[in-house]
Simulated assay, not measured.
Amino acid sequence: MLSVDRLRVLHAVAVHGSLSAASQALHVTNSAVSQQLTKLEREVGQPLVERAGRGVRLTDAAELLVEHTARILSMVQRAEAELEAHRDDVVGHLRLSATPTAVRGLMPHALTSLREAHPGLRVEINEEEPHESVPAMARGDADLALVVDWEGAPLELPTGMSRAPLMEDVGDIALPAVHPLAHRELLELDEILTLPWISWSRGSICNDWLYDMIRSRGAEPLIVHTVEEHQTKLTLIAAGIGAAVMPRLGCGPVPEGVRVVPVQPALVRQVYVFWRTESSRRPAIRAAVRALREAASVYTESAPRP
């Protein structure tokens, strides 16, 4: 009889590419991963991993087993979801991958609501950008993902996912207070295309969107810095170093020396949550989606405008 837990370890090695990466994903030691693989090899009567330089390589037998394991783990998740639905208790462990602005803007309210309504549910947040959340969901490392995508640049979700829209978020233009455009109440999009931009990190969907947005209007982006944290961007802008698109969700306090100005047409991004469709019956999933919708509604009603 093959052990599902040991199959899960083999699957993690295949997905993450090494024993150490698998151990980190599973929150166990390297030694524990090695022991589980050794036991699984004894169960199947064939070697499953081979040394390859400093790492390991899966054998043909392991590749075959991994293919079946992906389906087995999917069936296990579906069975767990149906059992939870049958019990109708909002309990257990829910892993949520969420973009940083959504963590700041929505999660305090959502987590408080879930804790008060469902004390038996433990929610674990992993702050990740959307380009990290999507693979995490595909690998099964998260149960829910709270993500954003910009208008005109939607995320491509893995197959077998369901999603729920939460809100629209608008991006304003953060400028040094001494900039000639900073005194305006509203900016035209074509006026800002040649600004020296402080963008997001390379490879992120937000950075790619900024490049595409500017180029679609016939200009070439002038990126002077790449900074992920919004408060760091605002500090640089206050010192007169560049400008940035500043989403309202999770922006935080604006320091002296910075002026945040709306732009038209508005720079809009969608905020939504998605999960594996096979988990839709889990009471914990349904409760978390309700809490996030409530948090988004509260935020939309109370958020200040520039």
Rank of each mutant, 00 (worst) to 15 (best):
E191Q: 15
E80T: 10
A303Y: 01
R42Q: 15
V298E: 13
S3L: 04
H225P: 00
G105C: 10
A266P: 10
G257Q: 05
S23P: 10
L187Y: 03
D208N: 10
E43D: 15
A25M: 02
E256N: 12
P253W: 00
T235G: 13
A61P: 02
L181A: 05
E256A: 14
S3Y: 03
A52M: 03
A52L: 08
I173E: 00
A12I: 06
L7W: 08
V49Q: 11
L144W: 08
A287D: 08
W150S: 09
V254E: 06
R305C: 07
T59L: 08
M107C: 14
L236G: 02
W197C: 01
V56W: 05
G120N: 09
L106W: 05
L187T: 08
L94K: 03
S18H: 07
V245A: 00
C251P: 00
L249P: 00
S216W: 00
P165E: 14
E129M: 09
L58K: 06
A153H: 13
L106H: 04
V49C: 04
V66C: 10
L96M: 12
T99D: 12
A238C: 05
L106C: 02
S297L: 10
E43I: 03
S3R: 11
R71S: 14
T159I: 04
V227Q: 07
E278T: 13
S302M: 11
D60K: 11
D208Q: 12
S201R: 14
E82G: 00
E301V: 13
R286C: 09
E43F: 02
V148L: 12
Q264R: 15
H183F: 11
Q77W: 05
Q264I: 08
V273F: 04
E188S: 13
E41Q: 15
P253R: 12
N207Y: 02
T226M: 12
I285V: 15
G218V: 03
P247V: 05
V227C: 00
R276M: 02
I205R: 11
P255F: 05
E67C: 02
A244I: 01
T194V: 10
A98H: 07
R139T: 06
R269W: 03
A287E: 09
M137H: 10
A110S: 08
E129T: 12
S20R: 14
T38Y: 10
R163T: 13
P262I: 11
V261E: 01
R290Q: 15
L187F: 04
E156I: 11
A102Y: 01
R215H: 01
L19N: 11
E301K: 14
V147S: 06
H131F: 12
E124C: 01
A79T: 14
P253N: 06
L2T: 11
T277H: 09
R259D: 04
R305F: 09
Q77T: 11
A61S: 14
H16Y: 14
R184F: 03
I205G: 04
P176T: 08
L166A: 03
L37G: 02
R104V: 09
T99Q: 13
P108R: 07
L195A: 07
V273W: 05
I205A: 14
R104K: 13
A266D: 09
A153R: 10
A145D: 09
R184C: 06
R281S: 15
P196T: 06
L210A: 10
G92N: 06
R57N: 03
P262T: 10
V178E: 14
I205H: 12
T101S: 15
W209C: 00
